[in-house]
């Protein structure tokens, strides 16, 4: 049976995830969105890592005198996932920089809605 501690653990993690998720979808600022994305992902990582924890276990590095180790597999997965996360952050922020330059804002409300297709196309053609 699940104990209170288990639920507490999982539910706080879920709360963290949802805070991050809310930040992604409700905030207009692009930097904030990316932060929210990071929050969201980091919380999922916590979920994963908890899956590998064995109470009474220790870090999965072979040592004398240690019998119980935590599961190394989730650690490996999350190492990879963290790297993926930072790659996304870097690319997202680079995009934000360029959007800031192109629009003068990184508040993603209605950017680009009133761009004039014909005008942009003409400029592209002339730029060629």
């Amino acid at each position: 049976m699940m104990t209170f501690l288990s639920f507490f653990n999982y539910w706080v993690v879920i709360a963290l995830m949802m805070i991050g998720f809310y930040c992604v979808i409700a905030r207009g600022n692009m930097v904030k969105k990316i932060m929210g994305l990071n929050l969201f992902q980091t919380s999922v990582f916590i979920l994963f890592i908890s899956a590998g924890k064995v109470v009474g276990g220790s870090t999965p590095i072979l040592r004398d005198g240690v019998e119980v180790y935590s599961n190394p597999l989730p650690h490996v997965l999350i190492l990879t996932a963290i790297v993926v996360g930072v790659a996304i952050t870097a690319l997202g922020l680079a995009l934000a920089v360029r959007i800031q330059e192109a629009y003068g804002s990184i508040e993603d409300d209605h950017l680009g809605d009133e761009d004039d297709d014909a005008e942009l196309a003409r400029m592209n053609r002339e730029g060629r």
């Binding site: 994305l37 969201f40 995009l95």
Partner: peptide, 22 residues
């Protein structure tokens, strides 16, 4: 993409795609 809206499109895709991947 040459159009500056390509940046916005990429950014929005990045956000949605990453949420999906998560």
């Amino acid at each position: 993409g040459r159009d500056r809206r390509a940046l916005l499109a990429a950014f929005r895709y990045l956000i949605m795609g990453t949420v999906g991947a998560t």
